[in-house]
Design a protein around this nucleic acid. Structure first.
Length: 504
DNA sequence: CTGGGGACGGGGCCC
DNA sequence: TGGGCCCCGTCCCCA
């Protein structure tokens, strides 16, 4: 016999204990404000806390403290209230930051609700367009010009599902007790990622996201896919990780003729524009961008998914496009510009020489070379031309770094003007390392099978999951050495300064 | 404050 | 049709 009120009663009791600071064994510091909570509850609610607390599990007698500056105390209040009540207090003002925080904390269901909230809250300004896109009866319940009138019923429908529902009137989303605590567990190197790094960028992202949202409109396609996704996540037996979920969505997007194919096929005929409107063919499901070719859409989608399948063999930096990699390689590693870096004069192989500084190469004219006193490095650039090929990177090439070379690369990077790598302090015992290693291995397995195309040894991975509705990636990346160590790589100088300021 | 360098996204062309 | 390449504009960072 099951007493249905037990779960909610239990949660109420826990919430009461939290408010009265009873049995609270975890302190969360957010921009100077301290939140008290229960380790068990946080562990069950957030993949991030699950990782953090599992790593600290040996020290259960000591109270756990976590510090965040990636989001505001108000945002964390919303998150924590949700954790202890199942009610998510979303407003148009806080939804972006809540979604961002939920992403950071790996609370998939919250992210889903936020996304749905955003989509539903968007001001659909292009009703004229919708008129042309009047959908079939089958699709009309979630899309098209009747969206606003069907809004509440749509939500009612969703609220009846075991997964989640949202009450736009109250600005509160409620995720049912059956699924709200089944968040994905991404055993990544979160010990590093917990650091208060992202405040600045997170805020900046929020601004950009807002800007982006103003521009974007919910796409019929993406709405439909979102529904499918939610249906999947509501099914606990087929619960998938967020990255896999993203990968699946990406796969769907990639494999189907996305967007409106005006004038093509019977289904599309009804959506075709009148003659005076542009005959664009492929619409991005995540933004308003429209391209003429499917290949262009595929290329464009990478700016939303954050996928960077083209690693530079020389420095490991990853690019979303091959031509950008080519350009980067030529500019940074091949000194293709026939310009003296110091005096900016035109140089040739006769009047100047190539200088190598770490993995970076540039040209100096003979005068500047003598002035600076740097030994030039005679390099046969043509013989290294093949190194530029990212897909079939030459394993024996000088750019392919062995593990030892990787280590020295880190040192170069730390000292040089390039990226700063902050190594994880590895002062643990061997036994503890054995506990960390499986996490990293899992991390690699999960993502190597996903869309991130993680290479074998060193990997760069965006620390924050990219949101479907935004195209602003985080500058923070996590370097994972499959061998055992992990580190944070911060890819721009101002953030490195911030990291140093925070004694990170 | 400004100009340069680099990254990156969009567009178009060629094969 | 897709991949590769080039050009252009924009943004960001830095000296």
């Amino acid at each position: 016999m099951e007493i249905s009120s037990h779960q909610s009663h239990l949660l109420q009791q826990l919430n009461e204990q939290r408010r009265q600071d009873v049995f609270c064994d975890c302190s969360i510091l957010v921009e100077g404000k301290v939140f008290k909570a229960h380790r068990n509850v946080l562990f069950a609610s957030s993949g991030y806390f699950k990782m953090l607390l599992s790593q600290n599990s040996k020290e259960t007698s000591q109270p756990t403290t976590a510090t965040f500056q990636a989001f505001s105390p108000d945002t964390f209040t919303v998150i924590l209230d949700f954790v202890y009540s199942g009610k998510l207090s979303l407003t148009g003002q806080n939804v972006i930051e809540v979604m961002s925080a939920a992403s950071f904390l790996q609370m998939t269901d919250v992210i889903s609700v936020c996304k749905t909230f955003i989509k539903s809250s968007l001001d659909i300004s292009e009703k004229e367009k919708d008129r042309y896109f009047s959908l079939s009866d089958k699709d009309a319940s979630s899309n098209g010009i009747e969206r606003s009138s069907l809004y509440s019923s749509s939500w009612q429908k969703e609220s009846s599902s075991p997964h989640s529902h949202l009450s736009p009137d109250q600005g509160t989303a409620v995720i049912s007790g059956k699924s709200w605590n089944k968040y994905n567990y991404h055993p990544t190197s979160q010990r590093n990622t917990q650091q208060p790094l992202a405040k600045h960028e997170q805020r900046k992202d929020s601004i950009k996201k807002s800007k982006h949202l103003r521009l974007s409109q919910p796409s019929e396609i993406v709405h439909y896919k979102s529904s499918k996704r939610e249906a999947r996540t509501s099914d606990s037996s087929s619960h998938i990780s967020q990255s896999e979920e993203q990968a699946q969505v990406d796969a769907e997007v990639d494999s189907t003729p996305v967007g409106y194919q005006y004038g093509q096929g019977s289904d599309v005929t009804s959506r075709s524009f009148p003659g005076d409107l542009p005959r664009m063919r492929f619409k991005c499901p995540y933004c308003t961008h429209v391209v003429k070719r499917k290949a262009d859409l595929k290329r464009h989608l990478r700016c939303h998914t954050g996928e960077r399948p083209y690693p530079c063999q020389a420095c490991g930096k990853r690019f979303s496009r091959l031509d950008h990699l080519s350009s980067h390689f030529r500019t940074i590693h091949q000194a293709c510009k026939l310009i003296c870096r110091k005096c900016k004069r035109h140089v040739t192989d006769v009047t100047g020489q190539v200088v190598q500084e770490g993995t970076r190469r540039y040209r100096l004219c003979n005068e500047c070379l003598a002035e600076v006193g740097i030994d030039s490095l005679p390099i046969d650039l043509e013989t290294e031309q093949h190194l530029m090929s990212p897909s079939d990177g030459d394993k024996d090439s000088r750019w392919h770094l062995s593990e030892d070379e990787n280590r020295s690369y880190v040192e170069i990077v730390e000292d040089g003007s390039s990226d700063l790598v902050i190594q994880q302090v590895d002062d643990s015992e061997e036994e503890e390392e054995k506990e960390i290693k499986p996490n990293i291995r899992n991390f690699l397995t999960i993502h190597a099978n996903g869309a991130m195309n993680i290479p074998e040894k060193w990997t760069l991975h965006r620390m924050y999951k990219l949101h479907f509705l935004t195209c602003q990636p985080s500058p923070y990346r996590v370097c994972i050495n499959a061998n055992k160590k992990s580190s944070i790589l911060i890819s721009n100088k101002s953030h490195r300064r911030e990291a140093k300021r925070l004694n990170f």
